[in-house]
Amino acid sequence: MQRLEKEREELLCSINVAESRASQQQERDRAGNLRTMLGHRDEVEQQVATERRRVAQLDQEIRKWDHRMAEQSKQLSSAEKLHRQNAQVQRRIRTLENQLDRASSWFNTHLAKNSQLRKELEILRVERAHFELLYRRLGKELQEARKAIGAIINASSLAYDSRLGQASSVLWEGSGG
Rank of each mutant, 00 (worst) to 15 (best):
R3L: 10
L4M: 04
E7H: 02
R8E: 01
E9G: 01
L12V: 01
V17A: 06
E19F: 03
R21C: 04
A22I: 03
A22K: 08
S23A: 03
R28W: 06
D29G: 00
T36G: 08
T36V: 14
T36Q: 14
M37E: 11
G39M: 09
G39E: 10
D42P: 04
D42L: 13
E45N: 15
E45L: 15
V48Y: 13
R52C: 12
R52I: 12
R63F: 12
R68P: 00
M69P: 01
E71F: 06
E71S: 08
Q72N: 12
K74H: 08
L76R: 05
L76V: 01
S77V: 10
E80N: 04
E80Y: 03
K81D: 14
L82K: 12
L82R: 12
H83M: 09
R84N: 08
Q85A: 11
N86H: 05
Q88A: 08
Q88T: 05
V89N: 14
V89Y: 15
Q90Y: 02
Q90W: 03
R92G: 01
R92E: 04
I93L: 15
L96E: 03
L96R: 02
E97T: 10
E97I: 06
N98P: 00
R102D: 05
R102Y: 04
S105W: 06
W106F: 12
F107T: 14
T109E: 15
A112C: 03
K113R: 14
S115W: 10
Q116M: 05
L117W: 06
R118A: 08
E120D: 10
E120A: 08
L121S: 15
L121I: 12
E122Y: 08
I123F: 07
L124I: 03
E132D: 10
L133C: 11
Y135C: 11
K140T: 07
A145P: 01
R146W: 02
R146L: 01
A148N: 04
I149H: 15
I153E: 12
A155F: 10
S157F: 08
L158G: 00
A159K: 11
Y160Q: 13
G165C: 11
A167T: 13
S169A: 03
L171N: 11
W172G: 08
E173S: 12
G174F: 08
G177W: 06
